[in-house]
Amino acid sequence: MSKVCQITGKKVMVGNNVSHSNRKTKRKFFVNLFTKKLYLPEEDRWISLKVSAAGLRIINKNGLAAALKNAQQKGYITNF
């Protein structure tokens, strides 16, 4: 599966390594992803998500059901 957060939609970014002599080579900035099993009490089941650290903070702040609904509206997840 790709390295994309299912709550925030964050994905790998591309940039440059810049040396002391100012030479530039391509590099990737990876997302801080975790595979987490979270309990959804509305449906009385566990779901498995690939979530970034920022996504976990959003889940803690807004609640899992609200975060899933928002992510589904934005098109980050199709079904959960």
Rank of each mutant, 00 (worst) to 15 (best):
K50N: 11
L68R: 04
C5P: 09
F80V: 15
N17M: 07
Y76E: 13
R27E: 08
A71H: 12
L49T: 05
N32K: 11
R57L: 05
N32L: 09
N32S: 09
V18A: 00
S48I: 08
G75Q: 12
K28M: 11
H20N: 10
N22S: 08
A54Q: 08
A71W: 14
I47V: 06
N17W: 02
L33R: 10
N79H: 13
T25R: 15
Q73G: 11
L49Y: 04
A67R: 03
Q73D: 14
K74Y: 15
R23Q: 10
A53P: 02
T78K: 15
K10W: 06
A67P: 02
V51K: 05
T78H: 15
K28G: 05
N79V: 12
L49C: 02
V18Q: 00
R45P: 00
I59T: 07
T25L: 09
S19K: 00
V12G: 03
V4R: 06
R45W: 02
E42Y: 06
C5M: 07
N22I: 09
N62K: 10
L38I: 05
S21Y: 06
S48H: 04
D44N: 15
T78M: 13
L33I: 12
A54F: 01
V12H: 05
Y76L: 14
V51H: 04
K50V: 11
N16R: 01
I59L: 08
N62M: 07
